[in-house]
Amino acid sequence: MVKVFDCPKSLTDMPTHYCPGCTHGIIHRLIAEVIDELGIADKAVGVAPVGCAVLAYNYFVCDMQEAAHGRAPAVATGIKRVVPEGVVFTYQGDGDLASIGCAEIVHAAARGELITTVFVNNGIYGMTGGQMAPTTLPGDKTSTSPYGRDTKKQGFPIRVSEMLATLDGPAYIARVSVHNVANIVKAKRAIKKAFEYQIAGKGFTLVEVLSTCPTNWGLTPKESLEKVQRDMMPYFPLGDYKDIEAGEKK
């Protein structure tokens, strides 16, 4: 018999703390699979955010740093400048990256910092109890937009990939989703490409992954995946937004 699928070596045995059906676990596994396939576990350094993934440093078999809220790209900059031969990645949610850490991610991208950011966008603050995120969809109810996000009062969601793709520093920016198996396979390809670009010194790389929050959305895991496809993907279209090897989209 041959192994068709097994747990990647770059994930620790520790079960994650994520709620049942939360797609953080899938995204963690994809990163670990990529680290395995590229054979970089012994030179990877990850940076964990503040948010639901705050404990991500427990789950990867590589060196990790835990950053203050939003500061992961700055911390990763410090690490990468000291260990240029290392492969440095940040793992950040939408509150961390698109709200409090907006300056850090924009400038790390603008500097063309040779790091890879995996940006998990589920349109809500999971950790602190389901508050409105910078990527919460118009009309969506959260614990701080109890009447539904009113764009007149609470502004519009930020499309991070599109925004960062306007900069010259990034080499690769893509938005992917993990709401079904086909897209999970594509998401992994994007993450792998991002790491490969980093290793080749091409520039800053970011993969935005549309993700779920069954607990704070109040939906079953299956319904959550359906919401990603039905509600999020029209607002946050999937695709490569920047690929310096392939030209720019749109």
Binding site: M1, V2, K3, V4, F5, D6, C7, P8, L11, P15, T16, Y18, G21, C22, T23, H24, G25, I26, R29, V178, N180, V181, I184, V185
Partner: peptide, 12 residues
Amino acid sequence: RICPDVVISVDK
């Protein structure tokens, strides 16, 4: 592939 908790391994 869809399992968030790496519960499943597959052989053939």
